[in-house]
Each structure stands twice: as C-alpha cells, then as structure tokens.
C-alpha cells in the first residue's frame, strides 16, 4: 500500500491570510484605505535620501520596527557624484519588485512551486526631454520592458499566466501604465 503525499507549494506567501483580508475588507471597506509616504531630504547636488517608516492603514497609523532608507543621485556622465541610483532606476526597481512579489503570490495561490525568479527591467529615456530641448520629447520613460526568467514546477503556459496575472494585480504596473493626479505643494 502506498500513500501519496500531497506536495504543497511553499513560496513563503501567506495567501490564506490575504484571502481572509479580502473577506474582512468586504465588510469594512474603509479599513482598506492605506496611505504610504516617503520623507526625503536633500543632501547635496542631486544627492538626496528618503526615510520610509510610517504608513496609514486598517484605520490607524503604523510605525515599523526600523526606518528604511533609499538614496538617489545621478551618474558621473550627468556631472554628478554617482552615490546612488537615479530616481527613474528606483522606479524600475519598484516595478521589478512589485511584479516579482506578485508572481510569488499568484504562484502560491495556484499551487506552483517557484525555484528561481529573475526579472530584468529596462526603461528608455531620451534625456533631451529633461534638458528641455524638445517639447515633443517627454521627460519620463518612452517605453519600459520587463523580461522574466522563471524556474518553476509548471508548464510554459502556466508560467505565462502567472506573469500576466501579476501585472493585472500590480500597484506599480498600474501606477506606470495609467495616469495619476499628482499634487505638489509648498509648506
């Protein structure tokens, strides 16, 4: 007699808790309203540093155990000291991490074990835009490409579906592909 053990995928994502949260937010939609923030200070030149800690959610303010720091600068070709990545690169990193987290979550939900996930994200910028040389050239990325390399116990088609679903549910993908009203004020 043989016993078949059901092998469950473990990508370290607690999808059951997330599904539970869906139920809770259905009852209390106001708890789902989150506000995230970054507190940035200028250091020198184009060098600046962001502190990220507090955020609002589930109806209250939260403080993390530690404050995270994200620095930004510009490379030497722009006559800067190159002490940190450029802000657009941080945007690419944010997209990469958002999609990767999404792939892990969707894979967990679908019972797919991931062995390795890598994504290379590229964005094209014509810097004549930010230099104000041509009004027809935008400041931001004219195109962004993300290329995944995924090793998982799943078919090619199922992996393609993971990647498609992670885009469908990604905050940063939405931020980049849809317009957002941005209000900037001076205290």
């Amino acid at each position: 007699m043989t016993y078949q053990t059901e092998v469950k995928a473990d990508n370290g994502v607690d999808t059951e808790a997330l599904i539970g949260a869906r139920g809770a937010f259905e009852q209390m939609p106001e708890a789902a309203a989150f506000t995230f923030r970054s507190d940035c200070a200028w250091i020198e030149g184009t060098y600046s540093s962001n502190n990220l800690n507090g955020y609002f959610g589930l109806g209250q303010e939260h403080t993390r155990k530690q404050t995270y720091r994200i620095e930004s600068d510009h490379p030497e070709v722009f006559h800067a000291a190159d002490r940190a990545p450029t802000p657009p690169e941080i945007v690419l990193a944010a997209l990469a991490s958002c999609l990767t987290g999404g792939v892990a979550s969707v894979a967990q939900h679908r019972g797919i074990q991931l062995n390795a996930v890598r994504v290379v994200v590229e964005g094209d910028i014509d810097v004549r835009g930010i230099l104000g040389m041509d009004p027809d050239i935008r400041n931001g990325f004219s195109a962004i490409r993300a290329s995944f390399d995924i090793d998982a116990n799943a078919s090619r088609e199922d992996i393609a579906a993971l990647v498609a679903q992670s885009q469908k549910r990604s905050a940063v993908f939405d931020i980049l592909t849809n317009p957002t009203n941005v209000a900037v004020s001076v205290a």
Binding site: I144, A160, D174, T177, N178, P179
Partner: peptide, 27 residues
C-alpha cells in the same frame, strides 16, 4: 490601443497595459 483611462484638457490618455491585456486574452 489600451484602455481609455481619462480625458484631461481635451487629451485622451490610454493605459500602457495593452500588451498584458492581449496576453491575458490569448491565455
């Protein structure tokens, strides 16, 4: 083109997610 996201100042702005919507449709 992608989903019409908004019209502002007479300009229609479309989502850049067309490729994924097409991929989802094929899948």
């Amino acid at each position: 083109t992608g989903r019409l996201a908004v019209v502002q100042d007479g300009v229609a702005k479309f989502s850049g997610a067309l490729a994924n919507h097409c991929a989802l449709s094929d899948l």
